[in-house]
Computed example of a mutant assay.
Amino acid sequence: MASLAKLENGNLSEQVYAVIRDTLMDGRYEPGERLRISGLASELGVSITPVREAIFRLVSEHALEMKAATAIHVRDIAPDELREIQFIRHFMEGESAALAASRITPKELAELEILQEKFRNAAAVDPEEAALLNRQIHFAVVAAARMPLVYATVENMWVLMGPLLRTFHKTMPVRDLTSGSHKHYDLLAALRNGDAAGARAALQADIAWGNALIGWLEEQRAKSD
């Protein structure tokens, strides 16, 4: 289980919700992992009530599933669900990258380049950190498009697939993630040159790379049937 930071006073239910949601997006929980309300409350330094409220909210959003009254699990997404998520990301993140090519600031571009180098270094040794950095790269591109509603929708997709991306980074060959030919580099070059079509194509190609995980999931389901 991921280690969670203690929370400050305030709207604890909202804070707990945000922490668990971010943890799902970052891939710090694995598909099927059980979350215990009492354990989360202890880690966060809060009572059970705000944790329960946050958990129920995430269950209603299909980010978590309740198998029994006290059995909360990270959702193990089916291949068809992941395929739909990929479909949504293909268009939303792709168009965001195209817009970002004309809207990104020099400071944002410099921060993206730093994130990419950190991602490349982490991918060789730390799949969990690589998954976190990968998410930060994608979100930074969408943020640079200046479309908050699209950003919120993309965020919802990452909440659902975050745990699977952790698996992705564990199963993909290290050379593919650390290679200088990674699509992130094509994306950075296009953003640097104000190339909307190039940025769109690079990010969509990067997203399509995740289709390998769909095939892997289908193989796992076939083995378990």
Rank of each mutant, 00 (worst) to 15 (best):
K107H: 10
E117H: 09
E8G: 03
N11E: 15
V142G: 05
L99C: 03
E93S: 01
N193C: 01
W216R: 13
A124G: 02
I214E: 15
R75Q: 10
D126H: 02
A202M: 06
L203E: 15
D22G: 01
V19W: 14
G215K: 11
L24K: 06
E155W: 15
A208M: 10
G27L: 04
F87Q: 15
K223E: 15
A63V: 07
I214Y: 12
I77W: 15
R52M: 04
H169R: 12
S102Q: 13
T167L: 14
T23Q: 14
S3T: 08
Q204I: 02
I137P: 00
Y29V: 04
A71N: 12
V142I: 14
A199E: 08
H73V: 11
N211S: 06
K183Q: 14
L35T: 09
L112Q: 08
Q204F: 06
N9V: 03
L112R: 05
A208K: 08
T23D: 11
E117F: 03
A205H: 07
A205F: 09
A110Y: 08
R28T: 01
R221Q: 14
V125Y: 09
R135W: 13
L82W: 14
Y185N: 09
Q220I: 04
N9E: 15
E113M: 11
K6N: 05
V19G: 02
T23V: 03
E30R: 13
A2D: 03
A222R: 12
K67C: 01
K107F: 09
L191N: 07
M25V: 03
G198K: 02
L187C: 02
R175H: 13
R34M: 13
A110P: 00
L109Q: 13
L213W: 11
N134L: 04
I37R: 14
L99M: 14
A143H: 15
I48P: 00
S38I: 08
F168K: 11
D22A: 06
G162R: 09
Y185M: 04
G198M: 03
N134M: 06
I114V: 14
A68Q: 11
H169G: 01
F119L: 11
M25Y: 06
A2F: 04
D76R: 07
T178D: 06
M147R: 15
A5W: 11
Y29Q: 05
V74E: 14
I55D: 06
G215S: 07
S42D: 14
A196Y: 13
G39N: 10
N121Q: 11
E30T: 04
A130N: 05
R28M: 09
P127E: 15
I104W: 12
L7M: 10
S38E: 15
E61W: 04
R57P: 00
A205V: 01
P79M: 10
E128Y: 08
R103A: 03
E117R: 11
L191G: 03
Y185A: 00
